[in-house]
Design a protein around this nucleic acid. Structure first.
Length: 900
RNA sequence: GGGUGGUUAGCUCAGUUGGUUAGAGCGCCGGUCUCACAUACCGGAGGUCGGCGGUUCGAAUCCGCCACCGCCCACCA
């Protein structure tokens, strides 16, 4: 391999595209169905087909890629299955907005033309996000890309519908559902999300029939937040034990403004303490009221609003209000009631109101015929799987949410009055007398009962009704394909906790019901990306970060590193959209650091090095043994952290090793040997090469581009692609506690000397008097090269080592740095020091030391501590006392010498 | 109303089962363009770990209460 000279700075855009191309060409991302290796499967949470990548996708997909690359390197047959979701309402809304720009509605163009228009849009604009996933380095198996509207996938959806229907788990029912008057569709409970709203509670007086003007009180007062629904009232109810109204049971009242007569009844559903204790029952416009009315029996369910949430053209609605939208109607009704004296009072009232999760319009409860999935039987296996540990959630606390939802699960409304989606495979008989509904995979010849003509149901299925099949429908189900056999069940699902109900729990249900097996073993919930005010990042809020911009400016690796290393398991990631530099420069800088570590090492390898295994360990110096030992520990720690999904720990372990240990210490220590100034150059080269190689492997899941590029520049024979290379395994023979301990002392000494040089402006040529304690002396003596290391790294000519006591008598003044074993480094002779200032400083230091010393003495004097604390803890305290005592003595001598 | 997460340096956050003198990055101060890197190097300042109480030889860590911030769920209309 020719060593091209590496540029002094890493330039991401210059290499990312080529590297990605190289990966694709090699097929390293493609899972081999016939491989004997143990599989590892992640299915992507399919983004909406027209989505563009936002920061949340960035985090989510980077995490998936980290796991998949890690397992791939560990030798598993890794499959990361990508794809997109047709996203019913969301996509339909996008196209409807486009039409609106041409002053058209979907009804103007018609169903068929509209659907082709959406397809057109999806084909031209869709899938952008998949290209963007490539840009951030995602190692998806693109040969298996799926779309929830693919023919195969649609077949799976129909199959599921038909099967569940046959099993009695899908039924058609008339219910009060959540209706979005803007999207013109029903919504599931999950899609109608609560938002707090400042509202009013209106107290309205209903006249009791037969009462005359003198009656006291005249009629009954009902509290409601929705006066506009009162024309749909069928009765008023109060609690049967509520004495206040005891005489009113069975009495008739008139609905204000319309005069419709309705009875008063009783129901245990009434909360006596709320409002007046009298409740109006509007079965067609409130799910609870529907239940109450049903329980009482014998009531109609009058609808008094249209699909647009306008007052209906209905005899129950006063003529002047018909056609008004619900807000205008409310205003007029309130005004009219105030005028007629029937508005008792209006109170400010804050409550949670359901809104459409797509357009945020207030949802209108509406009585209609819909298709439902009976959820209880499906939920049970999903619940059991979690409870007996077959399904693991990380972090575990989400289990409570998962459990609670499954425990109190309600039937799922799956029909949507949209045009973009999987058409429901049900055909209604044209003959009202027959009214049979035929449910089949393909269009039947006619009604399955009477054989007459039948029309297909107009509705489409909830988009989540296709998503919940994702882990197996993507693998070819209902066909028993090789892929399905090999790659189901999968292993890790990485997703955000906000779709735990929509998607995660339902996938588990579908997995057990149709496959008899969990779809994945672990669900890893990543955090949510927020801005500095902890608001969720979103385009609409204008606080988003465009990952593509970050990739351009800082590189994909910087983006990835920031997102992954910046957050602990399941915690949110806070980023400042107005300050990309603060967030992403550290990642970019680290990539550059890595680049330069490699640049230095590769340059100095001079085209090659002998393998580490051929080196005689007897020739290893302290620094060699130290870095080898540290490297082993880093491998263990990084691997361990990744296995436990602690990606931030893993990334930081590797980061620390590369920057703080390899670059800052080993590289510096080894320079004289490389330049031939000191012996041992070959050993150093060999170790450097091994360290770089391992570092690249360890960092590859986090920063695939820069590591792969550098890998390509490494001299020697190894796997052609880092993406397909082996994850390093730890080798205990290199663990060397003595070397770690000794090198730590060398580091301490170097740092102390640097401190003195910096603070007192000591010139490079000056010797540094040092009174060495045994531990430090051992470190320096056992490895005779190390004193030279200290001198070189601290940029001094000579360490002037002395035994015992202070070096002199006030000439070499100001004991400055004292090491943990009491070794003292002094300011050298001839250095200008401000004696007074030095006295103050030393005195302060002495006080601090005394305080610590007293604390530790008190601790050791405590019998309880000595007898009850673990022996090693006590021993540490003893050492501490000893060392601080020595430091104190050194300081005291200095103070005396200075004449403080 | 019920859950649940958080509160540690100016900022964003680590701190695994309670045990060295509580850490990192950025920012700040001082010094260096030292032949891998100024996207760098060296040194430094900065925290009574939200408050109170408790358990313990020992608490950022465990328990209780309080305060503030956030999220989820919930048929008091």
């Amino acid at each position: 391999m020719t060593t091209i000279t590496l540029a002094p700075q890493y330039d991401p855009p210059a290499i990312e595209r080529d590297i990605y191309r190289r990966w694709l060409d090699s097929g390293v991302f493609t899972a081999d169905v016939s491989s004997a290796d143990e599989p590892y499967v992640i299915v992507i949470p399919p983004p909406n087909v027209t989505d563009i990548l936002h920061a949340g996708h960035g985090l989510n997909n980077t995490l998936q890629d980290v796991f998949i690359r890690f397992e791939r390197m560990r030798g598993r047959e890794a499959l990361w299955l990508p794809g997109t979701d047709h996203a019913g309402i969301a996509t339909q809304n996008v196209v409807e907005r486009l039409l609106a720009g041409e002053n058209l509605t979907r009804h103007d163009v018609g169903r068929e033309a509209f659907v082709s228009r959406v397809w057109e849009h999806v084909k031209s604009k869709g899938g952008t996000i998949l290209k963007q996933l490539e840009a951030i380095g995602s190692s998806c198996d693109w040969s298996r890309t799926r779309f929830t509207f693919d023919d195969d996938y649609s077949l799976a959806v129909r199959t599921v519908f038909v099967r569940l229907h046959k099993d009695g788990l899908i039924y058609r029912g008339q219910r009060v559902i959540h209706w979005c008057p803007r999207c013109h569709t029903s919504l599931s409970d999950e899609e109608a999300e609560f938002r707090d709203r400042q509202d009013h509670l209106y107290f309205i007086r209903y006249h009791v029939q037969g009462d005359d003007a003198e009656s006291e009180p005249p009629g009954v007062v009902v509290a409601t937040t929705r006066p506009e629904t009162m024309f749909g009232d069928v009765c008023l109810v109060f609690h049967p034990d509520d004495d206040r109204f005891a005489l009113l049971d069975g009495v008739s009242v008139e609905i204000p403004l319309s005069g419709t007569v309705i009875p008063i009844r009783t129901s245990h559903a009434v909360e006596r303490d709320f409002g007046t204790g009298m409740l109006k029952v509007t079965p067609a416009h409130d799910a609870n009221d529907f239940d109450i009315a049903a329980e009482l029996g014998g009531f109609d369910t009058p609808s008094i609003m249209t699909e647009d949430a306008r007052m209906a053209d209905d005899p129950r609605v006063p003529a002047s209000l018909r056609g008004l939208d619900r807000d205008d109607a409310r205003r007029q009704i309130v005004a009219a009631l105030e005028a007629s004296g029937q508005m008792e009072k209006i109170e400010a009232y804050e409550h949670a109101v359901r809104h459409c999760y797509r357009c945020h319009t207030i949802v209108e409860p509406r009585l209609s015929d819909q298709w439902f999935v009976r959820m209880k039987p499906l939920a049970e296996p999903a619940l059991a799987a979690y409870r007996d540990g077959r399904l693991r959630l990380v972090p575990e606390r989400w289990g409570a949410v998962y459990e609670q939802w499954l425990t109190q699960i309600r039937d799922w409304n799956i029909s949507r009055q949209l045009w973009w989606g999987h058409r429901i495979p049900a055909w209604h008989c044209d003959d009202p007398a027959c009214a049979h509904i035929t449910v089949e995979m393909e269009e039947p010849d006619g009604c399955g009962k009477c054989g007459g003509p039948a029309r297909q149901d107009e509705d489409v299925l909830d988009t989540w009704f296709s998503s919940w099949l994702w882990p197996f429908a993507t693998l070819g189900w209902p066909e028993q394909t090789e892929d399905l056999t090999r790659f189901y069940p999968g292993h890790t699902l990485v997703t955000a906790p906000d779709i735990i109900f929509f998607w995660v729990a339902r996938m588990v249900m579908a997995g057990y019901h149709f496959m008899g097996e969990r779809p994945f073993e672990t669900v890893y919930f990543n955090g949510i990306v927020r801005d500095t005010q902890h608001r969720k990042m979103s385009k609409s809020a204008g606080n988003g970060i465009d990952p593509m911009e970050v990739v351009e400016q800082y590189g994909a690796d910087a983006l990835r590193f920031t997102l992954v290393a910046g957050s602990a398991v399941g915690t949110d990631v806070i980023l400042d959209p107005d300050d990309l530099e603060t967030s992403f420069a550290p990642g970019r800088n680290f990539a550059n650091k890595l680049w330069n570590i490699a640049r230095f090492i590769i340059t100095n390898l001079d085209g090659g090095s002998a393998p580490l295994s051929s080196m005689d360990p007897a020739q290893f110096e302290l620094a060699d043994r130290w870095i080898l030992s540290r490297c082993q520990r880093t491998i263990v720690a990084t691997t361990e952290a990744l296995v436990r999904f602690r990606t931030n720990d893993a990334a930081n372990e590797a980061y620390r090793f590369a920057w703080d240990e390899l670059a800052d210490w080993y590289l510096e220590q080894v320079k004289p040997r490389l330049y031939g100034v000191a012996p041992g150059g070959d050993v150093a080269r060999s170790i450097l090469s091994a360290m770089l190689e391992t570092t690249l492997r360890l960092l590859h899941p986090f920063m695939p581009f820069v590591t792969e590029e550098l890998w390509q520049h490494l001299p020697g024979n190894r796997e052609p692609l880092l993406a397909g290379a082996e994850w390093p395994s730890a080798n205990d023979t290199f663990i060397d506690e003595e070397a770690e301990d000794h090198f730590k002392r060398v580091q301490e000494l170097v740092t102390a000397v640097r401190g003195i040089r910096s603070e007192y402006g000591v010139k490079p040529g000056t010797a540094i008097p040092t009174v060495v304690q045994p531990a430090t002396r051992a470190a320096l003596e056992a490895f005779n090269a190390e004193q030279r290391t200290v001198e070189r790294l601290a940029k001094i000519d000579r360490l002037d080592l002395r035994e015992n006591g202070a070096p002199t008598n006030g000439i070499e003044v100001g004991a400055h740095q004292v090491l943990s074993d009491g070794t003292a480094v002094f300011v050298p002779l001839g250095t200008a020091i401000d004696i007074e200032r030095e006295c103050r400083r030393l005195t302060g230091e002495l006080e601090r030391l005394d305080k610590q010393l007293n604390a530790v003495k008190r601790k050791l004097a405590n019998q309880q501590f000595v007898t009850r604390a673990p022996a090693d803890v006590v021993a540490r305290e003893r050492e501490k006392e000893q060392s601080w005592h020595e430091q104190r003595e050194t300081l005291a001598v200095k103070l005396r010498d200075l004449g403080c």
